[in-house]
Simulated scan of single mutants.
Amino acid sequence: MAEKLQKLVVVTPARLTFSDEVRMVVVRGVEGELGILPDHAPLITRLVTDVVRIQKDGSWRVMAVSNGFLEVKNNQVTILADAAELAEEIDLERARRAKERAEERLKARPPDLDVVRAEAALRRALARLKAVELAQRYRGAR
Rank of each mutant, 00 (worst) to 15 (best):
A98G: 13
E89M: 12
L106S: 05
L37P: 02
L80C: 05
V27T: 00
E31D: 13
V116F: 14
G29L: 03
A98D: 14
E133A: 12
A125G: 08
H40V: 09
R97D: 15
K107H: 12
R28S: 01
I36H: 05
L113R: 12
R15T: 15
L129C: 08
R28L: 07
E33Y: 11
R94A: 15
L16G: 11
F18I: 08
M1E: 14
L5N: 05
V26E: 05
L129T: 13
L126D: 06
D39G: 01
V30F: 07
L34P: 01
S66I: 04
E133R: 15
L129P: 04
R97Q: 14
H40Q: 10
E21T: 10
A102L: 07
A131H: 06
G35K: 00
S19R: 11
V115D: 03
A121G: 10
E89N: 15
V62G: 04
A135N: 03
I79L: 06
V52H: 04
K7W: 00
K56N: 08
E21F: 13
L5K: 14
V30K: 09
L126Y: 09
L92I: 14
L113H: 08
D50M: 08
L34W: 09
L5Y: 09
E33D: 12
A108E: 15
G68C: 03
F69M: 12
T45G: 08
D91Q: 12
T45Q: 05
Q136G: 15
A135V: 01
D114N: 15
V72L: 04
V22F: 05
G58V: 07
F69C: 11
Q6E: 14
D39M: 03
E85Y: 02
R94I: 13
L70G: 04
Q136W: 13
V48Q: 12
V30D: 06
V9A: 00
L129I: 13
S59N: 10
E104I: 11
V30C: 07
D20Q: 02
A125V: 09
K7V: 08
K99N: 06
V22Y: 03
S19H: 00
R101K: 15
A14S: 12
T49R: 01
K4N: 11
